[in-house]
Amino acid sequence: MKRDWINLGLAAFVVLFFVFMLAPILIVVLVSFTSAGYVSFPIPGWSLKWFAHIFEYQPFIDALIVSIEIAIGATVLSCLIGVPAAIFLARSRSAWASGIMTFLLSPLSMPMIVIGFASLFFLSWLGVGISFAALLITHTVVCLPYIVRTVAGVYAGLPRSYEEAAAILGANPLLTFWHVTLPLIRPGIMAGSLFSFLTSFDNLPISYFFGSASTNTLPVVMLSYMENQFDPTIAALSTLQLALAVVALLIVDRVYGIDKMTVAG
């Protein structure tokens, strides 16, 4: 009898925990469909006007395009340099290889605001100050670890025998990589790319320092909008963003299986 009370209490706590976890998110989704002219809850009626309002505010559209370009660019760049590194590091057991791994993952542990602030001055000194290129470089610094970690995770779990078979059958290292290794690590690349894309897309502390009319990303524009106004447009934009993230996750899950991703993540 006493046992049941403890279990029941624990279960109730977990339910409360998820109310806490989901409430701030669900409330934004609901407010984005409000018919009111201001933020209120409960909402007085339903409407899609705040979604329409997103497209009437040009800075949102410009910033959305910049954000997508940067997120894709940083992810591609991270894959180009991160996948080869992950392939080497996943199979090496030497102490300095694990040191390199730690180094490649270290941007994850540093405060983003410090990376952003320091990069702005350094890149300005290099002559690429506030520009698309600077934004792309700095985003790649924080996206790279996600690619390295997930690809190395997937690759470390693969048996060497496939590649050895290809090599014995006469394939050169490049052919082996293209026809054997790459298809095998593709789930890791996709999962890492998804994390990388979402990280870049949601980044504010770095993008903030590189803000200008042509390089403002969506979170930067949203922040400055929120500092001046408090209306449901932000809710509508957030809901749209969430929907896109869910769709992306479902596609990756459909093609590669979510269980493979969580193992690697």
């Binding site: 934004v28 809901t239 969430l242």
Partner: peptide
């Protein structure tokens, strides 16, 4: 999967003058 802005906004809505 939600943006940091969305979650912050959620807390503002919960505790806003006309919030929940």
């Amino acid at each position: 999967l939600t943006s940091i802005i969305m979650r912050t906004f959620g807390w503002q809505v919960l505790f806003a003058r006309r919030g929940l």
